[in-house]
Amino acid sequence: MIEQDQHFHLDIFAGPLDLLLYLIRKNEVDIYNIPIQRITEQYLKYLELMKILDLDIAGEFLSMAATLMHIKSRLLLPPEEREELEEEEEDPRWELVRQLLEYKRFKDAADLFGNLERDQGKTFSRKPAVPDPVPAAELPLAEIDLFKLLDAFSEVLNEAEKRRPPEFEPDPFTLDDGRARVLERIAPREAILFHLLFDRGEPRTRVVVVFLALLELIRQQAVQVVQQGHFSEIMIRKVIPAGAG
């Protein structure tokens, strides 16, 4: 499916703490009382998805998985044994909670900075004669909720799984094809519902390739992921360069 040398390093997932906060929010659970079992299961599911995508999973994601499983195992001990083992020790979740709360303060501040940045982007001053060049390869990424996008991908993948036709021939569909498809489908309307990027009964490998192509386009800021409301479907939109606004 994906060629060997196309190992993706997408620096777009903010990190394991971000994923955990996302899961806590999504499950509407109390950060002070994290249901470790449920959250761990879901966390591992995301790692699985990243593996399917052949994303270069940062080591920190794996080490957080180990931490979660360790906490889980300690909580699973019968209460008597736990007391024996811990004596003066605290809830095994505490250190993680502390870390999450500390991280969240800065994550919230980062959101605020994002707003300030956008506001500032709407006002202009006299610029030095030469605008600072931003090399294309260094283009930072637009802000989107990528875990949400992974969720949507997971749904499409499940659909593909159900309809998988029994065929084992190599699919000649390349990443460039995937890219072309995404752009083609967006083109007529400048935006498209996420699931319409995929075809019914499409082989799983092709779904993966199209999704990878989408991630790459996001990274290049060629497309943008938007969502109108909390529960509305994710849409993919063409990015109109601000300069051409």
């Binding site: 777009i12 980062a110 959101d111 931003v134 930072p140 300069g243």
Partner: peptide, 26 residues
């Protein structure tokens, strides 16, 4: 903003990524 953006067609407004914003905030 929109009129000025038309003036600077070639100059793209590049926003920072989420990881970059978090790092900067810290």
């Amino acid at each position: 903003a929109s009129w000025i953006r038309n003036l600077y067609r070639t100059r793209r407004t590049v926003y920072l990524s989420k990881p970059a914003l978090e790092t900067l905030a810290i």
